[in-house]
Write a protein that binds this DNA or RNA. Structure first.
Lengths: 181, 181
DNA sequence: TGCAGCATGTAATTTGTTACATGATTAA
DNA sequence: TTAATCATGTAACAAATTACATGCTGCA
């Protein structure tokens, strides 16, 4: 599943422009599948070229045509196939953890700063997700609810872990490193 | 922080070959910063070109020379700078969640399959991390312990969440989709 | 007057993945 | 004999990020 397929999936619920999709990516998806214009617009062009979506150009005064993309039956079929095929990955890539692995090379102040920053971001994630659910909960599908809760649960667990275990990072170094001089 | 910088960091603890580093990436790092030969070998070549590491070629019978890389003072300095600069990201990219967002388009059997698969993988993650800590706990730095615990805590939280909330996915669809015919 | 929002896209770059290519040693 | 381990790498490809490029509308 790549951005292209996800765009197709979002279009399975309702027609939208690239701009609209970007706003969707700024909602829930931000927290587990971020994407920007740079991937969305090319994705839509590809989907249109493959006839999985159709494009209706809506003229507007003073701005570029609004291009409203609508999924085709072939597109719907392709998306359902995509959901069936392949085992979806779930991957974490954390420079944060990679950095903390080397805590013994870092100043305590720097460590503290990183931890605080991370806790703030995780709290913001939880708050953002909660706000989305409060605002759109009625119209959200079971899948959307599940995903929202999942993201919030992970963020909360990360916060809790940091608060309960940060002391591990401030111990005296036990690993011998190469002499640098 | 990219694979190159991480390799440099690993070399700050001890000299190693690309093959050795790959084994490290198959340990703890597998769970939050995966990398394969395809990124490791080029990274080492780049680091050597930048004089951040030195290479000692050790001849062997019947196999390619073992290339043992050793960090230089300049490399050590560069790595410490890297730890100081830039706010490290912590990003999730989950095709798993993106897929489940569309649960109402999926067969219950398929859903069940995905959930089970994910629970198994998460359990394996926890077990793998626990095994690493049991085996190497004595020599692991505080940072390594923190990171190991973090990974295990996240995986455990994910498992718990799935088990407690999977029913959300099996509700009747409430979202209206486009007619496909 | 200035900023946020609407609305499109391209191009260069970065990064990493996957497949390819080779081949001896050693333990089961 | 067969599989795992040791040991190196390159090349093609895929994907996404970032920066660039443009410009009106409408609100405060």
């Amino acid at each position: 599943m790549d951005v292209k397929t996800l765009c197709l999936g979002l279009l399975s619920a309702r027609p939208a422009s690239g701009y609209d999709l970007k706003k969707e990516f700024e909602g829930l998806f931000k927290h587990f599948f971020p994407a920007g214009y740079g991937s969305i617009y090319p994705a839509l062009a590809d989907l249109a070229a493959a006839k999985l979506v159709e494009c209706e150009c809506i003229e507007q005064r003073g701005r570029p045509d609004r291009k409203l993309y609508r999924i085709t039956p072939a597109g719907m079929h392709a998306f359902e196939q995509a959901l069936r095929q392949s085992s979806p990955r779930h991957r974490l890539r954390s420079e944060f953890l990679a950095t903390l692995y080397f805590a013994d090379l870092m100043e305590p102040e720097r460590l503290q700063e990183l931890l605080e920053q991370r806790v703030i971001e995780m709290r913001e994630t939880v708050e953002d997700i909660d706000a989305i659910v409060k605002a759109q909960g009625q119209q959200m599908s079971g899948g959307a609810h599940f995903v929202a809760g999942f993201g919030a649960a992970l963020a909360a667990a990360a916060t809790r872990y940091i608060e309960q275990h940060e002391s591990l990072l401030f111990e005296q170094p036990s690993i011998k490193r190469q002499a640098t001089a």
